[in-house]
Design a protein around this nucleic acid. Structure first.
Length: 804
DNA sequence: TCGGTTCAGAGTATT
DNA sequence: TCTGAACCGA
């Protein structure tokens, strides 16, 4: 045990060895959060306080879950495979598979990813003849997921007006459709699981008895339903160990509720609040910046990072004139880093929004510097892979209309829109799935549709005795997908991906240890013999939607008084069903040259949890970072600030901050002020690589009564007339200006006002002119005042002063 | 059924 | 400016 706890600092040690009570660990960036979490589990097991079987550990991403299991295996000689360590969705899936009857689901229920869900919604709207201009599918999807994340069924949603009532009705119809088809969306996994445990007390008690220790990672990211789910599993005899960092809460937009941290502390009377503030990642100056910045946030629990690593290098700040010049400078700087011995893969380039990557990529590509962009299509989201999965899904669950429509005519087999509409009408009339309705259809379409059903049936029988990878291979071949892509010009990549899917199936099989036994159940209620209702292929799974959808189904498996059967004792679902669930729950890597030594480009969001020797935070401009959509509300601005905090704390040794006076956005040149976040950093830690102007296009010199530079608007001249830029960004296309802007530049009141000029206003403070209209007495200018917003001002009225 | 054209919209994203 | 989705004509 000594070695388990060795090298933990005092706070970490305290957290790891807390008595079995509720605890909230405020874990700052780089403070050893994952280490504490995993060591806590190992310590509990090693000291005999709990068996591996009695631990429930929840994360948000598969990556985090995997890391936890890997680290745990390294600490203890146990098989983590059978432990309940996983994502909220993964664990709920496991629960629902085991108790599918109680949950009123077919055992082979399929999981819809976001794209599938949207397709299902579009189909629903079409079937119900809903005007999708008035009720955009995306909005409905957002509405449904939002409600589910709050734990609300359609019947629970408060109707505020007629428009909203329609959404609620469509929500109910959507749920009914899913139920009919035997599919669940992501949010449904949680909601259904919650409802299951809510109405089935013996089951709830069983799992409460089993999972004495519940541990949650990234608690600040939990939404309302996830918190409810955790509360539900936490009875008087359970200990909930929550680890999180309110300062790194950056997912409010997808339902995360930081308030859950404070709520947890209050509702559970948390006596053990431990702050992990010693940082093992970054040098002092970087942490000073982070601390100083985040201190401007009013709503936070409070925490201050420190390090004994010394202050290190200053934080470098660079001002560029154009976005491409910013990229050019970055390239020079990155070359320097590489020259100093930095690995490219230890250098990250961060930006607020994906669109910003283009300029950077363009410059990097031209410069021949290898780079890797995070994000983008994941393996299981690729069209060809989804097609193959569509066949497999349909074999497993013929009621899955989404899968049916995806592959019924792909590869093309002469089943056109007419035939499908005919089939949809027939299905609706008979309240059957499309698959089941095929035999009802008459006429020309009947033969071809029948042929398709025949194909699926054949695939099912042919693969019945095959192992999973062979079955997948068989389907990939016999579905006609391979042949189809062979005839396509750029089909080879797709064929490779289909082959890769076969490998993925093999890898899945060995990872899951399917066919092997689950680890021994230690201590908890002895499993009864074979439970009822484990057979069946799912064809018979059409439930009564009206009752099932609202969770009113009586528990079938769990009769009062009878022994509750633990999920681990339930027979496993078929390997294919497990694999399909895996494919939905883990969308896979984005396969972009993982191993190569390349510069790492990503959004700040994507960088959360990662760390690099050197980090560039680019595009630090008002309107971009903080994003303009967030600055009008305090909560939004504070989240942006946390995002900046996350960005800063990614850096180990060297941190660069850069911004540009102008940027091409939505096809127009935008003029910006530097981000307020730069002003919120402690001056002494900063080293300006360019003259510290802070204002945009600072070429106007009020004292001289004219423009700096040549008189024609030239960003390069204007920006650095005084000091000269450190970078050799000569290639940058400074001075680009639209014809409109050129026309708009006018003279007024004897002074020259021009786009890009810095001005001061008595009430709004400093800003920059971004547009000019009219002339003479009618002249108006549009000024970006940064935090005061963008205003139109009539020059005849407003008292504007030029700032030089 | 495909391919070219038009049009709106452009923040972040895991499962 | 650029992208993706919807739409229309052959």
């Amino acid at each position: 045990m000594a070695n388990l706890l060795a090298n933990l600092n005092e706070r970490q040690l305290a957290a790891v060895t807390l008595p079995p009570q509720h605890a909230l660990i405020l874990a700052g960036a780089g403070s050893g959060k994952t280490r504490v979490l995993t060591t806590r589990i190992a310590w509990l097991i090693q000291t005999g306080q709990v068996s591996p079987h009695g631990v429930l550990a929840v994360t948000f991403t598969n990556k985090a879950a995997r890391e936890m299991m890997t680290r745990l295996s390294a600490m203890l000689p146990i098989n983590t495979r059978g432990m309940w360590i996983g994502t909220f969705h993964g664990l709920c899936n496991r629960l629902l598979r085991a108790h599918h009857r109680d949950a009123a689901l077919p055992q082979t229920f399929q999981i819809l990813d976001s794209a599938d869900q949207l397709a299902a919604i579009k189909r629903l709207l079409k079937a119900l003849n809903v005007d999708d201009e008035k009720y955009p599918p995306r909005n409905l999807q957002f509405f449904i997921n939002g409600a589910k994340d709050e734990g609300l069924r359609a019947k629970d949603v408060e109707v505020v007006d007629d428009y909203n009532r329609r959404f609620v009705e469509l929500y109910a119809a959507y749920d009914a459709q899913c139920q009919r088809e035997g599919v669940v969306d992501f949010a449904e996994l949680l909601l259904r699981s919650h409802e299951l445990l809510e109405r089935n007390e013996p089951l709830r008690e069983h799992y409460r008895n089993r999972f004495r220790h519940i541990l949650v990672d990234e608690f600040q990211d939990t939404n309302a339903l996830q918190y409810k789910w955790l509360k539900q599993l936490t009875g008087p005899g359970n200990a909930l160990f929550a680890v999180g960092d309110d300062d790194q809460s950056i997912y409010a937009f997808r339902g995360a509720n930081v308030g859950n941290m404070a709520a947890f502390e209050r509702e559970f009377r948390v006596a053990n609040l431990i702050k992990l503030e010693q940082n093992y990642r970054s040098h002092g100056n970087i942490l000073d910046c982070a601390n100083h910045l985040i201190r401007q946030n009013a709503s936070r629990l409070g925490k201050e990072l420190w390090t004994d690593a010394g202050s290190g290098e200053p934080v470098r700040v660079h001002e560029a004139v154009t976005d491409s010049q910013e990229a050019q400078w970055l390239i020079e700087e990155a070359r320097g880093l590489i020259g100093e011995g930095y690995l490219r893969s230890d250098v990250a380039v961060l930006y607020r929004s994906n669109a910003q990557s283009r300029v950077l990529e363009h410059a990097l590509f031209s410069a021949g510097i290898p780079y890797r962009v995070y994000g983008g299509l994941r393996f299981f989201e690729r069209a060809e892979v989804k097609h193959a999965l569509g066949y497999l899904r349909l074999m497993e669950n013929p009621n899955d209309d989404t899968a049916f429509l995806r592959v019924v005519n792909f590869p093309v087999r002469g089943i056109g829109a007419r035939s499908i509409e005919q089939l949809q009408d027939a299905a609706r009339a008979a309240n059957l799935s499309l698959y089941a309705a095929v035999h009802v259809v008459r006429g020309a379409a009947a033969a071809k549709l029948g042929g398709f059903v025949g194909l699926i049936e054949r695939l099912r029988t042919e693969t019945a005795s095959l192992a999973l990878p062979e079955a997948v291979e068989h389907v990939v071949e016999r579905s006609g997908l391979i042949t189809h892509y062979q005839s396509e010009r750029e089909g080879q990549d797709r064929i490779d991906n289909l082959r890769e899917l076969v490998n993925a199936a093999a890898a899945f099989l060995s990872e899951q240890g399917i066919g092997l036994d689950v680890p021994a159940n230690l201590g908890v209620s002895a499993p009864a013999a074979a439970p009822a209702g484990a057979a069946g292929t799912g064809t018979s799974a059409t439930h009564d939607a009206a009752t099932a959808a609202v969770g009113g189904v009586a528990a079938a498996d769990t009769v009062a008084g009878a022994a509750v059967i633990d999920a681990d004792a339930m027979p496993r679902t078929t390997p294919l069903a497990s694999f399909l669930a895996h494919a939905s729950l883990e969308s896979g890597d984005n396969q972009a040259g993982e191993g190569t030594d390349a510069l790492q480009l990503m959004t700040v969001h994507a960088a959360k949890g990662l760390e690099f020797d050197a980090v560039f935070i680019t595009g630090l401009e008002e309107g971009l970072f903080p994003h303009e959509n967030s600055v009008t509300e305090v909560a939004g601005l504070e989240e942006e600030r946390r995002l900046m905090y996350v960005a800063i704390t990614r850096a180990r040794k060297r941190l660069y901050l850069s911004f540009s006076q102008t940027r091409m956005l939505h096809g127009q040149t935008r003029y910006s002020l530097k981000s307020r976040f730069i002003d919120e950093l402690p001056e002494p830690t900063l080293k300006w690589l360019t003259p510290r102007t802070g204002l945009v296009g600072g070429g106007f010199d009020g004292r001289r009564g004219g423009w700096g530079g040549s008189g024609a608007w030239g960003a390069r001249d204007a920006g650095y007339a005084a000091g000269g830029p450190a970078s050799a960004g000569g290639a940058a296309s400074g001075g680009v200006r639209s014809a409109d802007a050129r026309l708009a530049a006018r003279f007024d009141r004897g002074l020259s006002w021009r786009i890009g000029q810095s001005v001061a206003h008595s009430r709004f403070g400093e800003g920059v002119i971004i547009n000019i209209e009219g002339s003479g007495a009618d002249a108006r200018v549009q000024v970006n005042f940064g935090r005061e917003g963008v205003k139109w001002l009539a020059l005849s009225v407003a008292k504007l002063e030029a700032v030089g």
